[in-house]
């Protein structure tokens, strides 16, 4: 069985390994330089007590390297497209499933071995990549918002990779042709990732809410936190969202038009004097790992459900 997997999918493994080696080399070199620069900068700013703006004089990597790191975002999708989707769809398309499933190995065992290897490969590659990128991001994480690069570091890339492969396999078990299976996997992967990122992730834990004086602007929002919402609250506690309509303005402020005479024309101070405040909700930096855990769990559960579906589909229906 394992020989079969290797003989049929060895090339994909070699290709992925080569890509990983290239990526590792680039990130190790640039990452080491960055880590060194950071250590040096930290030492020198410590001497002059000016570490507050250490970020401004630190080498943060070449733009192209940054882009490369951001691009690791799509690798789980690539696993889904090139390992997951063809796994069954290619067998069906070439008719070789009727060869494979009439050998002296049960269909269940064949499927188990194939799925296991695909998931294992995705997990190993995903983990290697995630570890590398997380390490590379270390100095950056110490300085800036980790939530901004939530999707490429920590555990979630591993979970996304498992999900991508599982989704591809499940789609391939239903749509028995490679190209349509690829297209469907692509669309579903993007839709699910984006939907969860936008609609679910902000609510894994109730955001922290803080009221700020309008006169201070957002200066009080904790550094490196993930801003969820930003709105104006009236004296009675009414939330106006981030925009007023004219007739909602307190009488005294209605005549002030922003833009006239520079800035907001005194609007902020007028509102502040009428008892208005700014309400900011955010997820503090300390929740980063909890969020990683929750999101990873969601995608692992989805992957498990998809694999379950695939087994049901392949084993209980006609080949």
């Amino acid at each position: 069985m394992n020989f079969m997997i290797w003989r049929l999918h060895g090339n994909q493994a070699y290709f992925a390994a080569a890509a990983l080696v290239v990526l590792t080399t680039i990130l190790l070199v640039t990452g080491s330089v960055m880590a060194h620069d950071y250590a040096v900068a930290l030492a020198s700013c410590g001497a002059t007590s000016s570490c507050a703006d250490i970020g401004s004089f630190l080498f943060r990597g070449d733009g192209a390297i940054m882009d490369l790191v951001d691009l690791t975002l799509v690798t789980p999708l690539l696993f889904g497209l090139f390992w997951g989707a063809p796994l069954l769809a290619k067998e069906f398309e070439d008719g070789t499933h009727s060869l494979a499933w009439t050998q002296g190995v049960t269909r269940a065992r064949w499927l188990r071995t194939n799925v296991m290897w695909a998931l294992l490969a995705a997990a190993v590659w995903g983990a290697a990549m995630a570890a590398l990128v997380t390490w590379w991001h270390n100095p950056e994480n110490a300085l800036g918002a980790r939530f901004g690069t939530f999707d490429v570091q920590g555990f979630v890339p591993v979970a996304y990779s498992l999900f991508g492969v599982a989704l591809g396999i499940a789609v391939g078990s239903v749509i028995r042709r490679v190209l349509p299976a690829l297209a469907t996997t692509l669309a579903l992967f993007l839709a699910i990732r984006v939907a969860i990122g936008i609609y679910l992730r902000p609510h894994y834990e109730t955001p922290v809410a803080k009221l700020y004086s309008l006169l201070n602007g957002k200066a009080g929002q904790p550094a490196n936190s993930w801003a969820i919402s930003n709105s104006i609250v009236g004296p009675g506690g009414h939330n106006y969202g981030d925009q007023f309509s004219l007739n909602e303005l307190p009488k005294g402020c209605a005549s002030i038009f922003p833009g006239k005479g520079g800035g907001d024309g005194g609007m902020s101070s007028c509102l502040a004097s009428h008892g208005f405040h700014q309400l900011v909700t955010f997820q503090p930096d300390t929740r980063f790992w909890a969020f990683q855990g929750i999101e990873a769990a969601i995608f692992v559960v989805l992957a498990a459900a998809l694999i379950g579906f695939t087994f049901w589909r392949v084993l209980s229906r006609d080949a």
């Binding site: 020989f3 008719g95 050998q103």
Partner: peptide, 30 residues
């Protein structure tokens, strides 16, 4: 499964593998 041999219509084989590969595959599966 190993007592019944089956050759489907259009002789499905793994196109990139050689006959020898197929035979070794079969040896691992049967």
């Amino acid at each position: 499964l190993s007592s019944v041999g089956y050759l489907a219509q259009d002789v499905p084989l793994y196109p990139r593998l050689s006959a020898e590969d197929h035979l070794r595959l079969g040896a691992h599966l049967n």
